[in-house]
Amino acid sequence: MLTRSLVLSAILFGLGVAGVVVRRNAIILFMCIELMLNAVNLAFVALSRAAGIEGQIFVFFVMTVAAAEAAVGLAIIISIFRHAETVDMKNFNLLRW
């Protein structure tokens, strides 16, 4: 049971990583990052059965942090949308090496 939950969590996390690497829309990138965080939450809950109740408490912390990140992240996305009228990462090339 534990192994299966952990594998599921790893798969979700991997999907999130793949999404961040492949996709170019800022909102979708952000959603993929949230998917990664929630994959971790699943791992915490699954592990808390064996490792103790703290795992479930950590989930609350992670959810709070994710909410704070969402607030700031969406504000930043809006602020760039006002300049560029798009949220597609391939248009953001003012800065380059």
């Binding site: 961040v20 990138l29 952000f30 990140e69 700031v72 930043i76 760039i80 006002r82 300049h83 800065l95």
Partner: peptide, 15 residues
């Protein structure tokens, strides 16, 4: 605009 762009890139990779 440079500031907004920097914030977006920093935010996404930081998160």
């Amino acid at each position: 605009r440079r500031s907004a762009e920097a914030a977006l890139k920093y935010f996404l990779l930081g998160a």
